[in-house]
Structures are given as C-alpha cells and as structure tokens.
Design a protein around this nucleic acid. Structure first.
Lengths: 257, 257
DNA sequence: TTCCATCCTTGATCTATGTCACGGAGAGCC
DNA sequence: GGCTCTCCGTGACATAGATCAAGGATGGAA
C-alpha cells in the first residue's frame, strides 16, 4: 500500500517527528511500509524480536500481556499513537502483544533506521526521548490507578475522562466493547457490569455503548479524579475545586484511547 | 559535599553517561550537586516541578504515589539508579514522590543542562532514550505482574528474583522492611505475612529478614516465572525447562531493588 | 532493669472480586 | 420465522484480599 501524500503530512505532525530535520524524516519514510490490516490481526506477539516502530494512522490497536493462560489489556491506542518504541530503541524483544481491534492502517518504520537517525539527528533523538517519557508517565498513571483505586473508582474515573475527551457531553459513547474495557480496567466483564450497576446511584445510566452521566458532580465526588493519575488532556477540568483540581495542565503524554 | 574523583568514575560508568562525550559529561557534572541525605528525607513530592535529574550513588530511594489518603510504593532504587528522568525530559512535574529509605548519597544534575546536552550530543541523547526505554519496560513488567498474578504468586516471584540476584544462595536477605515489601508488591502487611505463611508449604521458611528457600524447584513451579515479566538479570535462570525459561537474556533494564 | 516504640504476626470478620451457570437481547443468516 | 452466534447482564457461590483488634518480639532510651 503506497504511502499517500496526505498520510505523510499527518505523520509529519507527530510530536516526535515534527522536530526532525527534513533529511532525517525522508530517510525514515524511505524504508517505511504502510499497511492496512483487518480487525483482529496480531501484529506482534510478546517475546518477538522487534524490527519496526509501529504508528497507528487509522483504527485501533490493543496492547496486551499474558501469563499463565490469563490475558490483560495494557493499552488501547487510537490514530497517531506509536507503539513498541521502547523495544525498538533497545533493539530487544517485545514485552506486549499488539493486535488490531478495528481495520487499521499502520505505518511501520525500520527500527534500524530509527536508531541510526536518533544518533545522527540530536533534535530527533530528543523528540523520541520525549515520546518515551510520555509513554512512561502514562504507565505510571495506570499503575497508580491500578494499585490505589478499587474497580468502581477506576470505572468512574474512566467515564469522567471519556466525558472530558468527548467534549463534556451528557451522554458518552464507549469506544470499545465492555469486555475490552473490563480488561483494560483490570476487572472481569461480570464485575464491570456490576460496577456500572453500582454507579446508577450516582446518576450513571447505561444503554448499550451509550452511557449517560446525569449528575457529573456527584460522580466526580465518588471518583476523586487526580491530575497526577488521570490525564484529562486535551480539555481542562472544571468544577470540583479541590486542591489538585485547581491546575490541570495539558500533559503531552500518550493517551490511552 | 564535594564530588569526589571516585564518585565521578562510578557515575561515568552509568550506561546513559558512558557514551556521552567528555565535553558533555563535564558540562553535566559542572552544574551538579552531590548531597548526603539521612533516611526518611523527602527529596520530591508528587506534583512538584522537577529541576534536577537524581542519581542514587549510595543508599536506597523509594518512589511512591498517593491517592485519597492511600499510598503505594512503585519502586525501590539502589545505587546507580536514576529517577525522575521522564519528568526532566518533559520539563514537567513529578508523578511520584521520592524518599530516602537509608542514608543516601544523591547526585543531582541540572535538568536544563541535561535537556540542552541531549539536543547537542546525539550519542548522549540516544543513551538517555535507552535509559528511559529501560524504565518503561520495567514498569510494563510490574504492571503485568500486578494485573495477572495474585499476591502469593507475586511474592513467590519476588523471592525467586532475589535468590538469583543474591547469587543462588539458599537463604536470602530481604533488603527492606516487610511492610515496604508489601506495598511494593501491592498488598497489605497483614496479607504479606499470610502469603509467607502459605509459602511454608513450598519450602519457604522465614526468620526475620532471612528467608530460606528450601525447595527452589517447588517454589518455581508455583511462581511460574516468566522472562517477559520477571527481570532476573544479571544472572541467568537455570532449571525449570519450560518454553519461556529456555532463553533468559540479560535485560539492560532498570532494576527495582 | 523497666519503659516505650516499632515491627511483625495472627485470628476474626467483612468486603471486593472472581467464577460458574444461566438467560436474554440483538445481529446475521438460511 | 427460526436458527445460531456473540455479547451482556445477573444470581449464587467461592476465594482473595482488606480491615480491625490484639498481642508478641525486638531494640533502643531512661
């Protein structure tokens, strides 16, 4: 699948490619592939050695890990996310599997070329560091959420984050199947159902993939969102008024769709 | 506290400084401080803006996060670990608090200088990327352990990792108080006690900070260690023989003490 | 020595979460 | 319509983990 001019322009706008000089950019693109995959395609299995940096141009990619016949989803990535960057930088094997959830257009950049470019174009190398730092901080946030909050609280905060991202609407649309969401939030589908049921007391009404947040203030009081865990970018949080809610800066961090 | 020549040599050996050119190294050190802190000193509180990259030269530093009056330990760092690198690279505020657990010697490098150096010395910038990538992968491992394993399994794997790192000895020494270990493993101290008690059936005997692993094979059968979760570097795993145990490469990743 | 503080352990109990089983709603198909 | 499939919700139950309370061990400090 040829790389279209319009795709190139989109990719060029990625933060970690924006500061690269034209020469670096050209080199990276020259050895790159753009491929369209159907839903459910396994792009990478954990343990595989990694030859490419992947960039989601369209669709959704799920990053997951397994152990002892159990599986968990670690992140869901939408357009213009990179993944497997850390493994590429270290030229080692992947710790996570990557699977498409929708039909997806994926740009694959040669890992070898990327590493060489980083060592020759310092501005580009710095931008990659920033991208990695963003991924790292995204994971720190997930980890804190996982260890410090209970299931209902994780769900409540997820809903609030979605609400902000979807433009403070009253009714949000869950972007994924509920069993996928359950795994991302670290619980079973059965428990997610029950968590939704519990949130009815806080003004949350569920209708298929549509979730109406009738009393955002009440839900927020339960969720206690925190700027150091929840990344509500690009919108800024209003209301609430507690210490940590006062300043809610945009974080240039990876967003988990 | 003046920076001694011997300290400089140790710091120079850090992977992420080894490839830096002499000029870069000199510049980084020039604006650096070496400070000795007593145990229990808070170096950084989550939310603080970050001006320095920290490097543990001696002692132990705990990275923790809080929410809703609960606290959890995210990592315990020993000598020659860096921390808060991601926040420095992005010039943003810290997501974790950092506290000394022992008396500790900490080298502090100006964040501004570091960022400038990265953009001027591509080899150095690349090395920082590798350091960040290692931190990221360490967190991915923790996350998988947290979401996929139960408390007893997490403890069992912790013990096996310690055994490998301490040189395959029969009796290992827990490097931290048990309540600290409990928080790191994501459980309460009470539950850690009970988890130790359960492991008695698998040949584990506890005596204060000394833990004797009488039947490593039996414990390993329970723990099911996995190269994609547990980082047993620098030693290589022997025995076991299951698929994923065959190759257990040394991972150049951050080690959580 | 006695006192006190800290850390750890243990038992009783409660809560959260996982597991198993079942049934309904809806989509696609013949 | 009737079939089958997947996803979702729900009840009954089992298990893991948290909480509360108490007490034992240890190691200073007076």
């Amino acid at each position: 699948m040829p790389i279209k001019e319009v795709d190139l322009e989109r990719v060029r706008e990625l933060p970690f490619l924006k500061t690269a000089n034209d020469d670096t950019f050209r080199r990276l693109i020259q050895g790159a592939f753009l491929q369209r995959f159907p839903a459910g395609t396994t792009l990478l299995t954990e343990g595989d050695s990694v030859d490419f940096l992947y960039i989601v141009l369209d669709g959704t990619v799920e990053l997951s890990g397994t152990w002892n016949d159990k599986e968990t989803i670690l992140a869901l990535l939408g357009p213009l996310s990179t993944f497997i960057l850390a493994a590429v930088v270290l030229d080692t094997s992947a710790l996570m599997s990557a699977t498409t959830r929708d039909r997806s257009d994926i740009l694959m950049i040669s890992g070898e070329t990327l590493r060489r470019a980083m060592q020759e174009d310092a501005a580009f190398g710095f931008a990659v560091s920033q991208e990695l730092a963003g991924c790292y901080r995204g994971l720190v946030r997930s980890m804190k959420s996982q260890k410090l909050r209970g299931g209902i609280e994780r769900l409540a905060n997820y809903l609030i984050t979605q609400r902000v991202r979807q433009g403070d609407v009253e009714t949000i649309t869950l972007p994924h199947e509920k069993r996928v969401l359950a795994s991302l939030l670290g619980m079973t589908p059965e428990n997610l159902s029950r968590a939704f049921a519990s949130l009815a007391d806080y003004g949350v009404a569920v209708n298929g993939p549509l979730v109406t947040i009738g009393r955002p203030v009440v839900l927020t009081r339960l969720a206690k969102p925190d700027a150091l865990i929840d990344n509500h970018a690009p919108e800024v949080m209003r209301g609430g008024g507690k210490a940590r809610l006062e300043a809610w800066p945009n974080q240039p961090e990876r967003m988990t769709v």
